[in-house]
Structures are given as structure tokens and as C-alpha cells.
């Protein structure tokens, strides 16, 4: 348990160090943009497939339950709300952790154990600025882009399956969406994706950056990055869901109380 909090503390300090380096140095825009393109394009196909099937599976499951209560008209709203609030940000972050997080931890870990990072430092370049800032901010920004694409595909897929498999037309599907989804829902989803993306980026960069002990050390770094990313995301999801629900309730209360 103590080890867990030590790891969490070290990862948090690493994040602060990277953010400070970002603000203290210049010329970061171009490399970050390059990483955004790299991460987004590399993850696009996976996100498209996952988004499509998550939407489709969810609509089938929800239709089974709603049909029992003759409430199929709420299928569109319920499905869209679930995808935006919870499933979308979570699935995207787990995919990012598996594909980009592992890749980043392995890449930086290999650079560390083969002394490439030391060499960069000795040649007068800050390795945090040169290697970590672009990757960390690139993954964070990409998580938002990928979430947006994933949600569109997921809702599109759900609409198609609802029409073909459940007999719910597109107007019927979309008519219930405003009852369950507001601008606040989108903002909450984007916030969640940003937090999860930050976790993926920070943990994988940190684990790679501090790797030691040759090929075995790199393997260990990748495994640790994967485990800790998923754990932190689940904890963050629990906390954020509580916090956002509370904000939602307070906002509704205030709106209801106003004339």
C-alpha cells in the first residue's frame, strides 16, 4: 500500500516536472502537433472498430431490458447518454493505454536502458522537453480527438443496429436523446477523456523514463505502465463520476430554483 502511494507520488511529481518544462521552454508546438498526428492516426482504426461495436452491443443489451417495460422509445437517449458519460471515455482510455501507452513506455524505456536519454542530456538538450513534453501533451490532446470520433461512430453504429435489429427508426432513436443528454454531458465526457488521457500519458512516459536493467527492465516498465494506468483510470472514474453527478445535481437544483 505504501509502495502504491509512493508510485502515485512519483508519477504526480513527474507530471509537474513535465508541465513546468513545457511552460519554461519554447518551440514545443511543432513536436506536440507531430505527436498528436502520430497518436491519432495510429489509434484511429482501433477506435473506429471499438466505437462501432460498443455502440452496437450496448443498444442490443439496452433494448432487451427496455422491451420488458415497453420503454424502447428511450433507447436512443439511454444508449447515447451511457456511451457519452461512461463507456466512451473509458473504452478510449483503455485502448490508448494498450496501444499508445505500452508503445511509449517501451520506446522511452529502450532509450533509457541503451543510454540514448543520457546521451541527449549530455549533448545539451533537456530530455524531458525533447522526448516527454511532445508525447505527454500529444497523447492528452489525441484522447479528446479520439473520444469525439469514437462517440460519433458509436452513436452512428447504435442507430444502425437499433434500426435493423430492434425496429427503432432514426427519428425515434434521436427523439429521446435531448431528454438524457445535454451540453453538460459532452463537457463531462471531454473532461473525463482529458483526465484519463493525462493518466495514460503520464504513467507510460514516467515508467519508460525511469526504466532500468536492460530488456527485462523495459518489459517490467511496460507491464507496470499497463497495470498502473488501468488502476488509476478506474480510481479516477469512480471519483469523477461522483464529482460530476454532484455538480449535475447542484446545477439542476440551481436551475430549478431560479425564476
Amino acid at each position: 500500500m505504501i509502495q502504491f502511494f509512493q508510485d502515485l507520488g512519483a508519477t504526480s511529481l513527474f507530471f509537474v516536472r513535465v508541465v513546468r518544462t513545457f511552460f519554461a521552454t519554447q518551440g514545443n508546438f511543432q513536436p506536440i502537433l507531430g505527436q498528436v498526428a502520430f497518436v491519432s492516426l495510429r489509434s484511429l482504426s482501433t477506435v473506429l472498430f471499438a466505437g462501432l461495436f460498443v455502440g452496437a452491443i450496448l443498444v442490443l443489451q439496452l433494448d432487451l431490458i427496455l422491451a420488458k417495460y415497453d420503454a424502447e422509445l428511450f433507447l436512443g437517449g439511454l444508449n447515447t447518454s451511457t456511451v457519452i458519460r461512461e463507456v466512451g471515455p473509458l473504452i478510449i482510455s483503455f485502448l490508448l493505454a494498450g496501444k499508445i501507452g505500452a508503445f511509449t513506455a517501451a520506446e522511452l524505456g529502450t532509450m533509457r536502458v541503451t543510454e540514448q536519454i543520457d546521451a541527449i542530456e549530455c549533448l545539451g538538450t533537456n530530455p524531458i522537453q525533447y522526448l516527454v513534453v511532445p508525447r505527454l501533451f500529444g497523447i492528452m490532446i489525441s484522447s479528446l480527438i479520439l473520444l469525439f470520433i469514437g462517440l460519433l461512430v458509436s452513436i452512428g453504429g447504435a442507430m444502425a443496429v437499433a434500426w435493423f435489429a430492434c425496429g427503432i427508426t432514426i427519428p425515434e432513436f434521436t427523439s429521446s436523446i435531448p431528454k438524457f443528454v445535454s451540453i453538460g454531458t459532452f463537457v463531462a465526457a471531454l473532461f473525463k477523456a482529458l483526465v484519463y488521457g493525462t493518466i495514460v500519458a503520464t504513467v507510460s512516459c514516467h515508467r519508460g523514463f525511469i526504466a532500468t536493467g536492460g530488456a527485462r527492465g523495459v518489459g517490467h516498465a511496460v507491464t507496470q505502465a499497463s497495470i498502473f494506468t488501468n488502476l488509476y483510470i478506474l480510481f479516477a472514474n469512480f471519483g469523477l463520476s461522483h464529482m460530476l453527478t454532484l455538480i449535475d445535481t447542484l446545477t439542476e437544483g440551481l436551475m430549478g430554483g431560479s425564476p
Binding site: T114, E115, Q116, D118, A119, I120
Partner: peptide, 8 residues
């Protein structure tokens, strides 16, 4: 360095 440490 002991390794060539060239940037891949």
C-alpha cells in the same frame, strides 16, 4: 557511452 546510444 558504453552503448552507441544513437537516436534510432
Amino acid at each position: 557511452f558504453q552503448h552507441p546510444a544513437l537516436l534510432d
